[in-house]
């Protein structure tokens, strides 16, 4: 067991309805895990609970060998007073300079490193932002729609690169895109309303990696299972 949530219950102050009621989730090995579900079901709240952004919940979170949790999300911004390169350089530990070059290449952002963040497109901004997190020390990284607005080919390249580069880390990949979660994730945690029990249904993903063949039929089954579970 690497990570386990036991009987997590939570509701926002002054709210009548629970977001989570006795939520259970267990991760036993490193890899990319999908978090899927309709809007408002609590995916972001879950990410905040895991990374310490929300503390007034009940239940237990147990971890083994996982110490550093990070949470990145779509629409984060970099300060505008200097170029993307300067910001990335500033937050990169010396030991990760090689990794930085590698990721910049793989994420396809080399051409606009001299630009200010605000001048980039949304997809470019999300890629730059994600690189910042990947250059930090972490054991678990939650990516909350962190690749939104990135075209499908680049997105596939990025996800595969992450899986190759960080084989010992845990990733929670929050997405509304059933195709990508079913294709790239090891398991997909399908979040449902608090009044449904269990609140999370687990669906096995295809865990696609470079060089692997994926049968169209298998993908369709996984997608169907996800949709049925939600």
């Amino acid at each position: 067991m690497l990570f386990e949530c036991r009987n997590i219950s939570f509701r926002y102050p002054d709210a009548e309805d629970y977001v989570f009621r006795d939520l259970m989730l267990k991760v036993t090995e490193p890899g990319l895990y999908g978090i899927f579900g309709p809007s408002g079901v609590g995916k972001t709240s879950f990410a905040k609970i895991v990374t310490g952004g929300i503390r007034d919940f009940s239940g237990d979170i147990r971890t083994e060998h996982l110490n550093i949790f990070l949470y990145s999300y779509n629409l984060e911004r970099l300060p505008g007073w200097s170029s993307v390169r300067r910001h990335i350089d500033k937050i990169t530990p010396l030991s990760k300079n090689g990794l930085k070059t590698e990721l910049i290449e793989a994420f396809g952002i080399h051409g606009y490193l001299t630009s200010r963040f605000s001048k980039l497109s949304l997809g470019q901004q999300n890629r730059v932002n994600l690189i910042r997190y990947l250059l930090q020390d972490f054991d678990l990284l939650i990516m909350d729609e962190s690749l939104a607005n990135v075209d499908e080919l680049t997105k596939e390249e990025i996800i595969l690169k992450i899986k190759e580069t960080f084989p010992m880390a845990c990733f929670f990949y929050i997405s509304h895109n059933v195709v990508e979660v079913s294709r790239f994730c090891k398991q997909i945690y399908v979040f449902r309303d608090a009044h449904k029990q269990p609140q999370i249904q687990i669906v096995k993903g295809l865990d696609f990696s470079r060089g692997q063949q994926v049968e169209k039929k298998d993908q369709e089954i996984a997608m169907l299972e996800i949709m049925n579970a939600s």
Partner: peptide, 8 residues
């Protein structure tokens, strides 16, 4: 903007 610096 601040989230990254805070969480790291």
């Amino acid at each position: 903007i601040e989230h990254f610096y805070r969480i790291t």
